[in-house]
Structure formats: structure tokens, C-alpha cells
Design a binder for these strands. Structure first.
Lengths: 112, 112
DNA sequence: TGGTGATACCTCGTATAACAAAGTATACGC
DNA sequence: GCGTATACTTTGTTATACGAGGTATCACCA
């Protein structure tokens, strides 16, 4: 089942911040990471992730550093800033609020 | 705490369908219903709800009927169609998938 | 009778976010 | 040297939730 494209809106930032909180990752890695860690449920494309990372960096929530080892392609590795960490806490709390609100409406009832 | 306006995107239809599955409601009532039932977490404005109801009706997911009792204002009461019920099942399942995916990334960790 | 507030509906413009698609470039195996 | 996987970038499209404005009716009360 493919998730509705609108459903994830607003939560994307949160999951990116959460992933980067665990370990620094570069963009392409992040795509794979999110896909596998979410068991394929959250499959963000590069066209979503890269612009998002730029925005997060511009807002001071993540910091990107170019890395280049011998025999490797250059890559930009992102890590969470302190501000990003605080933002993650906030967004994480909001996410839980949302889940709570929706759950209250759905009422634990299964519609399947 | 006010929810980020983007966070709810995509879930709005689901909660409206779920509310109407329990009981027919008219638009204004629906605003109140969602707000109180979700303990104030989901506070949709009329500018969100009315156009959404028109869309749902155009798609055959809900049916609206004008009602007018003596000494009452006219109101349009919406109820779920069979198609709407099926759609609710689908969207409800998608919602649970999303929650599962995000939870896997957040990893049960509390960022507060 | 006239004013206020709650009810109930309607509509437009705006912001923004996620995506698809296309492009560039490098490393590696064969 | 050719294909494939890696890695990053950009653009245009679409959907949606919201704010702010509007109209109208009813109950209440002074």
C-alpha cells in the first residue's frame, strides 16, 4: 500500500531530524535509511529530501559538511545542531499530540 | 500547543469520514464535534471544513441533505455513503501505516 | 425595536510542502 | 569503454489547510 502523498506532510521534518539525531548521514544515505528503517513505509524521494535538508540547514537545525575520502564520491554529511535537537523535541511532541487527536476521533475502532 | 498547520494534511479527510460514520452531522456541528472529541487538539476552521465537505460529496463519499425544523436555521446534514465507508476503511489503514512508519523512525524514544 | 451574540453557511487568496522528472557527475566492475 | 550504483541539484506541478472576509437567521433582552 502506497501512502497518500499528502499524509506525510509536516511529519517529514520530524523523521529527518530524528534520523539525524541518532547518527550523521548524508542525503542519499538518508533516503535509504528512512526507507529501510520504516520497513518501506516512508519512501521519500531525493526531490523531497535534498531541498528539505537545505531548508533545515538554512534554519540552523542541521549542519552539513562536505566529506571526501580517497576513492569515494564527495558527499555532504548532515548532523543535528543543538537547535535542531530542541526542534526535534518540539515536533516530536506535536506528532504525539496529532496521533492522540486522530486516535480520539477514530476511537480505536477498526474500519478494516 | 497549537499543531503545525501542515501536520494534519491528508488526515483531515479521514477524521471527517470517521466522525460522520458514527452519526450524521452538519458542518458547523462537525467543527465543534471534532474540536471537543479530540480534546481541542484538532481545531479545524470552517474555511477548511466546508470546502472539504463539498469535495467529499462531489466524490460520492458523503451525502448532504438540507434540513429545516420550525424555529431553526436551515442546515445541511451530512452522512456517510457506502463508498465513503469503504474509503474510510482504506484511509484508516493508511493512517495506521503512517503512524507505524513514523514510530519506527522515532524509535519510541522520547525527545522531550 | 433594536442590539448583541450564537448559529450556520459560503468563498477567495495565500502559503507551503511533497513529489516526479530531468539533469550532472563520479566510482567501480566487467 | 560501458553500464550500474552512488550522490547531489533543480524545476514545475499539485494538493491542501488556513485565515479572513462575507451573508443570513434565530434567541434573548433591555
Amino acid at each position: 500500500m502506497k501512502l497518500d502523498r499528502e499524509l506525510l506532510k509536516g511529519a517529514t521534518e520530524t523523521i529527518v531530524l530524528a534520523a539525524l539525531d541518532r547518527q550523521p548521514l548524508h542525503g542519499y544515505q538518508l533516503v535509504e535509511h528512512l526507507r529501510t528503517q520504516s520497513e518501506g513505509i516512508l519512501a521519500l524521494g531525493e526531490g523531497t529530501l535534498y531541498p528539505l535538508l537545505y531548508k533545515l540547514e538554512a534554519n540552523g537545525l542541521v549542519r552539513g559538511r562536505w566529506e571526501k575520502s580517497a576513492g569515494e564520491r564527495r558527499k555532504r554529511v548532515y548532523s543535528l545542531t543543538r537547535k535542531g535537537h530542541r526542534c526535534l523535541a518540539e515536533r516530536s511532541a506535536q506528532w504525539e499530540q496529532l496521533v492522540r487527536g486522530v486516535t480520539l476521533i477514530l476511537g480505536g475502532k477498526s474500519y478494516a
